[in-house]
């Protein structure tokens, strides 16, 4: 905590979690305002605790900023800058996975997700990308769906296999 003598520390990213927590705490309190006491009590207590801790944190940050120990900035938050676009794409693929899985089913979604992700994070040659992704998707299908009977959303591949066997 004592940063005297060191270059100022970027703290903007450090505020994301506390501010998010406080926002949820406020929403929570609003959502329970008309409920009976026993339904409110613990959540209210937690909300007060969160808001109290976050307030202390904000005061600490403000003092740090005033004294020049902190500065507003993201610092290393996003990791090495050269790979940021690729890693953001990777996050995009993860989000696309949820959107696609109800339609494409487990096996195809996993295959496409792995192909794109391997490609974007830099696995080469392309043949290896497809082979590893394909093997993983098939092993996953065999293990999770055939063997364990997980009721994952079925897509074209699962339907085809279901029709064949």
């Amino acid at each position: 905590m004592s940063q005297q003598g060191k270059p100022s520390k970027p703290v903007l990213a450090d505020l994301i979690l506390p501010v998010g927590a406080a926002a949820y705490a406020v929403y929570y309190v609003l959502s329970v305002r008309s409920f009976p006491f026993q339904a409110q009590v613990s959540g209210m207590a937690m909300a007060i605790l969160v808001c109290l801790l976050v307030s202390i944190f904000l005061v600490r940050t403000l003092i740090g900023l005033r004294r020049g120990r902190y500065r507003l900035g993201l610092g290393d938050f996003l990791g090495p800058p050269e790979s940021v676009p690729n890693r953001l794409l990777f996050v995009g693929f993860i989000l696309a996975y949820v959107a696609a899985v109800p339609w494409l089913g487990f096996t195809l979604t996993t295959f496409v997700f792995l192909c794109l992700s391997f490609a974007v994070v830099g696995v080469r040659p392309w043949r290896r990308v497809v082979v590893v992704a394909g093997t993983a998707a098939l092993v996953g299908w065999l293990f999770f769906i055939v063997l364990l009977g997980t009721r994952f959303p079925a897509g074209p591949f699962e339907r085809l296999m279901g029709a064949l066997f």
Binding site: Y24, Y28, V32, F35, Q38, A39, M46, V50
Partner: peptide, 19 residues
């Protein structure tokens, strides 16, 4: 924050959905 998130859901007495 974890405890706050853990307080989510129906309460134990009245099953009232919270947060």
């Amino acid at each position: 924050f974890g405890l706050m998130l853990g307080s989510m859901g129906a309460d134990h007495i009245y099953a009232a959905p919270r947060g």
